[in-house]
Design a binder for these strands. Structure first.
Length: 429
RNA sequence: GGAGGGGUGCCCGAGUGGUCGAAGGGGGCGGCCUUGAAAGCCGCUGAGGGUCUAGUGCCCUCCGGGGGUUCGAAUCCCUCCCCCUCCGCCA
């Protein structure tokens, strides 16, 4: 969330920056409530002060063995007045908190102005798109023909937007996960963690999924627990309500987790194939850094994610999201889009964001600056490194051959028992 | 699921109704000592909020969360959450 004091002191700036995102936010209402809140705080605190002094006096009288009945009745009245004011204040504060949680982060000044994804700007291209002497096919056709996807049985055991990976498909998914984890831990200095895939409500609020985006989440019945939509949630919340020493920064984490998304409102989008599933695997990079260099850290985070695609030989482009397409909690986001020749389009495969102190303030993640000064909020960043299912999709489409087989990228072969080509799976059923 | 014990500051830990925001230790910061460091010694060191004359100011809140009793709660009561031990169940 935003800093209430900053909003109060720079309302025009905040208004203007929120306007860049488009949409309506309850800023004016918040400012009004904040004024009321501060007035109530003063009244309450004055009363408390009075009561405190009077109570102390009673203690003094009692010690001297004097009569205190007159004083106690007076203070009791004071207490009752205080109680009703406190209740009022509590309600106002709850409302302020609610409004604050519904206001998104302010876009960074380097984020291009724009209304929606059409205004995102391509900032980089890498790799040559493969040329084929046949018409390249989409991954769902390749995968089903190879027998590595089974959508029919997935629909039977669960429902739509699920898939069963079989044989070399399952192995390829597993190889990708391990390959990515190895790259980020060994070459990029990330610490590997394997967090819970289920988190509580406080964690979801900490990273910004709740309270606003409840409909995107799977919730466990009779529990205040949710399936994670991304490892960003458990990993960022690792340090919720902590104060870490400055010398511990920056903290780099990498985590493999499955991700669960209700995909409410995406009916009819990407219904074919494995691009948009209710459950998918992802390797996620998360950074906790000091505010001074978070934008440099965003650039290196992006490069760390890009390197996965480079090593796999998959062509891609990087776009910077415009203000209108920016996620709720993010101040700046780069998307990496991999080339999918079977669909003749680029598909998002990673999203790398700097949240500045927006999540840190929600989740109360701070660091103590060297020299023992007051704690400050860290900056948090995260990025997919990468979405595993979509990487598998890109491999099928970019490495497909005329005969329907798929070449395994060289870096993955050690992870697949030396397998060089994926051929039709020979299963009796 | 049953029985018991516990949650206090950056960390550990004392504190069972009244100057208790809280002993002590660790850590951190500063100083002395030292060629330098370690050790030793001395001092400082919680967080959040409100306010103005903006000060090394004044005030309020915070001892797991919420509620209650009381003139007054870290301390008493209720409730919820979490952790530990034993038993049961279990991959």
């Amino acid at each position: 969330m935003l800093d209430l004091r900053f909003i109060r002191e720079h309302p025009d700036l905040v208004r203007e920056k929120l306007a860049r995102r488009g949409g309506e936010y309850p800023l004016e209402q918040l400012l009004e409530l904040d004024q009321l809140r501060r007035k109530l705080i003063q009244e309450v605190e004055n009363l408390r002060h009075e009561r405190k002094k009077a109570s102390e006096a009673i203690g003094e009288l009692k010690r001297k063995g004097k009569d205190i009945t007159a004083e106690t009745t007076r203070v009791k009245e004071l207490g009752e007045r205080l109680k009703s004011l406190e209740k009022e204040l509590q309600e106002i504060e709850a409302q302020v908190k609610t409004l604050l949680l519904e206001i998104p982060n302010l876009p960074h000044d380097s984020v291009p102005l724009g209304a929606d994804e059409k205004d995102n700007q391509v900032v980089k291209r890498w790799g040559d798109m493969p040329s084929f002497d046949f018409t390249p096919r989409p991954h769902w056709e390749i995968g089903e023909e190879l027998g590595i996807f089974d959508f029919v049985r997935a629909a039977k055991i669960t429902g739509s937007r699920f898939v069963v990976y079989r044989g070399a498909g399952a192995m390829l998914e597993r190889a990708l996960i391990t390959f990515m984890l190895d790259l980020h831990t060994r070459a990029h200095g990330y610490r590997e963690v394997l967090p819970p895939f289920i988190v509580n409500e406080a964690s979801m609020i900490g990273t910004g999924q709740l309270p606003k985006f409840k409909e995107d989440l799977f919730k466990l019945e009779d529990w205040d627990y949710y399936l994670i939509p991304t490892a960003e949630v458990p990993v960022t919340n690792l340090h919720r309500s902590e104060i870490v020493p400055e010398k511990a920064l920056p903290l780099y984490y990498v985590a493999y987790t499955p991700c669960f998304r209700a995909e409410a409102g995406s009916h009819g989008r990407d219904v074919r194939g494995i691009i948009r599933q209710h459950q998918f695997n992802k390797v996620e990079l998360v950074k906790f850094v000091s505010p001074e260099n978070s934008y440099e850290e965003l650039e290196t985070l992006l490069l760390d994610a890009e390197e996965v695609l480079q090593k796999l030989g998959l062509p891609y482009r990087v776009v910077v999201l415009c203000t209108g397409d920016l996620g709720f909690s993010a101040a700046k986001t780069y998307d990496i889009e991999v080339w999918a020749p079977g669909q003749e389009r680029f598909v998002e495969i990673s999203s790398c964001s700097n949240f500045e102190d927006y999540q840190a303030r929600r989740a109360n993640i701070r660091y103590r600056p060297q020299g023992g000064q007051k704690p400050r909020f860290v900056h948090t960043l995260n990025g997919s490194g990468l979405a595993v299912g979509r990487t598998l999709m890109a491999i099928l489409e970019n490495y497909q051959q005329k005969d329907g087989t798929v070449v395994v990228p060289e870096v993955l072969r050690p992870y697949m028992g030396g397998l060089e080509v994926i051929e039709p799976q020979d299963f009796p059923v």
